[in-house]
Design a protein around this nucleic acid. Structure first.
Length: 846
RNA sequence: GCCCGCUUGGUGGAAUGGUAGACACAACAGACUUAAAAUCUGUCGAUCGAAAGGUCGUGCCAGUUCGAGUCUGGCAGCGGGCACCA
């Protein structure tokens, strides 16, 4: 028997055998368990983040399979999106060719990992077989009033003549052209996610197995707030501005009205005011990124107009167009109360506006003050608390018909139009007679034409000579197709349903979807905590409203994994270097090409731009799938970032070989053991190993259930280390070793399925270990007869004592107070308190 | 700027409010070997001490508690998200 595990031979052998025996084919039986890893974008090569994600999913899928569940564990491709178009522009490859090539590579790489996917359910979002159903869903949304059209802003590159994504805008300039980007208005399709805002918020409370942090982020994103809508009539014009505020109590501290530069009233004003027009243009040079708008210097434009204060006769407030007022939140108009708001304060100082405190700061701290306190300088509100004042103001506003109570959400409707080629066509026809006409369902899919080029600016669909011209399905008049395509988030908002019946002529079969959903365990990166997960939750509810199913939440349990990081290297010139361009010579890292020293940077998320990517395929080639899988599970808990190191992968490889040597070196001894002939008596050594075997089953089971995968690996190692030292001498000990090895092979199988399968065969069993039931711990072995108790005096550890956990407090106290290291501390002092937690600790308080 | 996290030895990390550092990695010393690789054994938070043992120690500052890495408040550093990257 070789002392090195031949992973190349065995991994290929078992992957082939599993595939031929259709081991991972989904069977619709109860109890069911749906494991899903986030749909990958086919970037070309498998990276470590993917490997980590799929290994996490595979462990739970295999463990649940062994525990008697029927598993749905599918895989597919989020195949539309921007990078394919960038590749087309840069390298002249057609997006479809580029994407399918990437899928082909990545699929091969994923398959080499031996993940238990049912590949017969694979989906590809850029295939008309997939997006035709998305088009149908969109038309249903339209019927149901969930989809609608409105104007909104995009980043416009005036040189390229194209719309840019936020990531393509760098410091306010187009990434290719370098031209300053402007915010431009376009008519686009939106989905009414705001109609579901309250339900999306309320249902978070039922998602018991989602990380709190994700639920908090979603709740803040939805951003429900209670406040008031206040009417401010303009003095100079017949016009009333509506303001939404969460702080109506500070109304007497108002010193100005701020209105968004994108507000229709401002646009109207600008038509006759060139200076205002210039100001708006400046504001729009910021692009659409919220971060840029909020971090920009606060600027205002005094319109010269004034509004009347709702409660103070003869008191007027100036109307400023302010760059920090967002058109998408509230009404796009605010009243500024500088004494109690950071932004308003900054603005007021800059434009020399009055700052009148209306809430008394009990600490007399500096302004602005945002805390609680009693109202001052506020007429009828004086002496009230903030809460009372809010109620009173709203009451008076209602009485005077100048406002109402109002609930507002930060959440905005979801714009799904993209002015791009590589996405699902929006199934709409624009007819000059009939207006907006949905493509009739029997004409779906609206297929993306393939004969396009990227040699001119803008969306190739727009300049396509034939595709966009059709006759109106209603009146027959020559019309034009919608040339925008869907946001790719649409594709990933319902794919989990398609997997349930991937070949259906409908988007999905209701029966199958309702059988499998919700997804029992969803796993993916924390970077998707808000957008993707919120959109998928929204789609689920919207589909319910359209009568597709009776499901409200798609994902029951959620695991958000951290990123895979690696050290970064730069040469003397400061250029990033790949790990394979660097080597250690005489204890120093040098550039292989010329031997010059390398600057080692801190560990960062693996990314192409920093060159700190380790390709997964290379590691699988060198060490095998089980080794890379084991390393991904070791050391770091799933939620945390993972540090990729060469030494770490080596360590995992050593463990694989250790298990291989351990089991194969005892094979001849074990062949004589008959599992059914349980010995009547066991030696002490045997009992100790049996105890550890069952304890390990119990610990490992808990570890997997709780996703403590790093502890799962640690417990396997501890078990293996103990078995290495165990040299069996009599029949009971051989039987014990037999039990221990079978347990070990079963326990490693979710993580190391190829090695487990190999050893299972070596132990003389027919395939497949992956179909074997999960081992059960015998409770008789889990009870501790003696425990080590920590003994503290005044909370400080002074020693330990091995005793039975069943001793009473009095028995324990008598023993402990007699211990020499306790008496030395206690001396003559009276014992004030004696704390005794059986099995854990005793604390003598003096 | 706003929202959400994270911070423990040389390194990754372990620890239902109860013996801080499990399990690994690296390093060092040794065994085996002609040699190397592989494998095995030992040491491995800091500090004082010949030893027994003591003292300090979980980013920083306070607090709650018999007892805090863990809970609370504040601060710092790092990371994720911010609506057209996915």
């Amino acid at each position: 028997m070789s002392t090195r595990y031949n992973f190349r031979e065995y991994e290929a052998k078992w992957q082939k055998a599993w595939a031929e025996a259709l081991v991972y084919q989904t069977k619709e039986k109860t109890p069911k368990y749906y494991v899903l890893e986030m749909l990958p974008y086919p970037s070309g090569r498998l990276h470590m983040g993917h490997v980590r994600n799929y290994t996490f999913g595979d462990v739970i899928a295999r463990y649940k399979r062994a525990s008697g569940y029927s598993i749905l564990h599918p895989m597919g491709w989020d195949a539309f999106g921007l990078p394919a178009e960038n590749a087309a522009i840069q390298h002249g490859v057609h997006p479809k060719v580029w994407t399918l090539e990437n899928v082909r590579f990545m699929k091969e790489e994923i398959q080499s990992l031996g993940i238990s996917y049912d590949w017969s359910r694979e989906i590809l979002t850029c295939s008309p077989d997939y997006y035709r159903h998305e088009q149908k869903i969109f038309l249903d949304f339209l019927k149901q009033g969930i989809a609608y059209r409105k104007e909104s802003f995009v980043n416009w590159d005036p040189v390229e003549g194209t719309v840019l994504a936020n990531e393509q805008v760098i410091d306010g300039k187009g990434w290719r052209s370098g031209a300053p980007v402007e915010r431009r208005k376009l008519s686009q399709w939106f989905l009414k996610i705001t109609d579901f805002a309250q339900e999306l918020l309320d249902d978070l409370t039922h998602l018991d197995h989602w990380p709190e942090q994700v639920k908090t982020m979603q709740a803040n994103w939805i951003g429900r707030s209670k406040g008031a809508l206040i009417h401010f009539p303009l003095i100079e014009k017949e016009e009333v501005l509506e303001v939404f505020t969460t702080r109506p109590d500070t109304i007497f501290g108002a010193s100005f009205i701020g209105i968004s530069p994108d507000h229709p009233f401002v646009e109207e004003l600008a038509k006759t005011a060139p200076a205002l027009h210039t100001f708006i243009t400046e504001c729009r040079a910021l692009g659409t990124s919220q971060k840029d708008v909020e971090t920009a210097e606060k600027k205002g434009f005094n319109t010269g107009l004034t509004v009347r204060h709702p409660f103070l006769k003869n008191h007027t407030l100036p109307l400023y167009v302010a760059n920090f007022v967002l058109i998408d939140y509230g009404t796009g108009v605010i009243f500024g109360c500088p004494a109690h708001d950071e932004r308003d304060y900054e603005f007021a100082v800059k434009y020399k506006l009055p700052i009148l405190p209306v809430i008394k700061d009990p600490q007399e701290g500096p302004l602005p003050y945002g805390g609680e306190g009693l109202l001052i300088n506020s007429e009828f509100l004086n002496g009230l608390t903030v809460e009372e004042a809010k109620k009173e103001v709203i009451h008076r506003l209602v009485t005077k018909k100048l406002g109402t109570a109002q609930i507002s959400y930060k959440l905005r409707d979801w714009g799904v139009s993209r002015q791009r080629y590589w996405g699902a066509p929006i199934p709409i026809i624009h007819c000059t007679h009939c207006g907006i006409v949905p493509v009739p369902e029997d004409q779906l899919p609206v297929t993306l034409p393939e004969d396009v080029t990227f040699d001119q600016p803008g969306n190739p669909l727009d300049s396509h000579p034939t595709w966009k011209y059709v006759d109106c399905p209603v009146c027959g008049h020559p019309s034009e197709r919608e040339t925008d395509t869907f946001d790719t988030f649409m594709d990933s908002s319902w794919y989990f349903a398609r997997y349930c019946s991937p070949h259906s002529a409908q988007p999905f079969e209701r029966k199958e979807a309702e059988f499998w959903l919700p997804v029992d365990q969803y796993i993916g990166g924390i970077e998707h905590a808000i957008l993707h997960l919120l959109y998928a939750r929204f789609f689920t509810k919207a589909l319910r409203e359209c009568g597709y199913w009776n499901i409200s939440e798609p994902f029951k349990n959620l695991l958000t994994q951290g990123m895979v990081c690696h050290e970064t290297y730069r040469d003397q010139a400061g250029s990033w270097l790949y790990p394979n361009q660097v080597e250690r010579r005489d204890g120093q890292l040098v550039k292989i090409a010329d031997g010059t020293p390398v600057k080692v940077g801190r560990s960062e998320k693996m990314s192409k731009s920093k060159c700190n990517v380790v390709p997964a395929a290379k590691i699988v080639e060198e060490y095998g799938a089980d080794t890379i899988r084991l390393f991904m599970l070791s050391d770091s808990p799933p939620e945390r970032d993972f540090e990729w190191t060469e030494a770490g992968i080596e360590g995992s490889w050593r463990y694989i070989n250790k298990v291989w040597r351990l089991v194969t070196s005892h094979l001849s001894d074990l062949r004589t053991v008959k599992a059914d002939d349980v010995p009547l008596t066991f030696t002490d050594n045997a009992l100790e190993i049996r105890k550890l075997t069952h304890k390990t089953i119990s610990l490992v089971t808990q570890d997997i259930e709780r996703f403590h995968y790093n502890r799962y690996v640690a417990h396997l190692r501890e078990f293996t280390n103990a078995l290495e030292e165990f040299i069996p001498n009599d029949a009971s000990e051989f039987w014990t070793l037999h039990e221990a090895f079978h347990t070990l092979v079963l326990l490693i199988s979710p993580a190391l399925p190829h090695l487990a399968e190999t050893l299972w065969a070596e132990l003389g069993h027919p395939p497949f270990v992956v179909n074997q039931p999960w081992p059960q711990a015998d409770p008789a072995f889990l009870r501790e007869e003696e425990v080590t108790l920590a003994i503290q005096v005044n909370g400080k550890l002074r020693g330990t004592l091995v005793i039975s956990p069943d001793l009473s407090v009095d028995e324990a106290k008598a023993l402990i107070l007699d211990l020499p290291f306790v008496t030395a501390q206690v001396q003559d002092s009276p014992v004030k308190k004696f704390i005794y937690i059986p099995g854990k600790i005793a604390n003598v308080v003096l």
